[in-house]
């Protein structure tokens, strides 16, 4: 995986303060009382039972290595937006529009890959109004038991858009509604355990790793990450 130290602050306390402050602000907007930062475990989604700590793997970005080339968008799109060609299902042509991971580029140059953060407290699932299935415990939006990725059951989803709002208001705004059905899209699939973005990133900026607890920038909107990194990288004060 990428060297996480590359984007560790020289003064971790001040960074944490920054993030927490902004987060609390966001939380207030979202109306949630969930305390996020420092969250060290993933609570099992099925309600009611005692919380159990799980480790899980997800896509992490090393912002110092990302060059903004968007290769990840094209391979994500090709894999996750397959095409039927002469009766055969093939990888797509890589139109970035259908990519689950997105690169946001800034001036001064900072490039932020944004993929589903698989937030431990999953505000998107919390917001889903569809009743839990008594057998599986799943709402329409649920966590895959094996990969822990967020998935949507298209048959049960009503397209209400609550999850989209929750992600937008409380986190990075990764989930967006399908323009026709209004059902949520762009949750990271982890490509059946072989994430294409990680595999093809020419710069080794993405990794598929078991996440470390309390990591920085999880679920933080790209604008806020960029603002913070611009300060760290381009400021001459320090």
């Amino acid at each position: 995986m990428g060297n996480m130290n590359n984007y560790k602050s020289e003064n971790p306390d001040s960074q944490m303060k920054y993030n927490r402050r902004d987060f609390i602000k966001k939380m207030a907007i979202g109306g949630s009382t969930v305390i996020l930062f420092g969250c060290r475990s993933l609570a099992q989604p099925s309600g009611g039972k005692a919380k159990k700590t799980l480790t899980y793997s997800m896509i992490l970005a090393d912002y110092s290595k990302c060059t903004g080339c968007r290769t990840c968008e094209t391979v994500c799109s090709a894999y996750n937006h397959k095409q039927m060609v002469n009766g055969e299902v093939l990888p797509g042509l890589g139109n970035p529009h259908y990519s689950n991971i997105k690169i946001y580029s800034y001036n001064p140059d900072v490039d932020i890959p944004v993929a589903c953060a698989m937030c431990p407290d999953n505000p998107c699932i919390e917001a889903c109004p569809v009743a839990s299935d008594p057998k599986t415990g799943r709402k329409a939006l649920y966590r895959d038991e094996k990969t822990l990725a967020i998935k949507n059951d298209l048959n049960r989803c009503t397209g209400c858009g609550n999850c989209v709002e929750a992600c937008r208001d409380q986190r990075a705004g990764v989930i967006i509604p399908n323009p026709e059905t209004n059902k949520p899209e762009r949750m990271c699939t982890l490509c059946n355990g072989d994430p294409q973005c990680v595999k093809y990133c020419p710069y080794g900026a993405l990794s598929f790793v078991t996440v470390s607890p309390g990591r920085e920038f999880q679920g933080v909107p790209a604008d806020m990450i960029a603002k913070e990194l611009t300060k760290r990288w381009y400021s001459i004060q320090n």
Binding site: C69, T71, D111
Partner: peptide
């Protein structure tokens, strides 16, 4: 500070 690349370019 950093390298940046054009669309799908591995050279940055």
């Amino acid at each position: 500070i950093r390298d940046f690349a054009c669309f799908c370019c591995p050279l940055s």
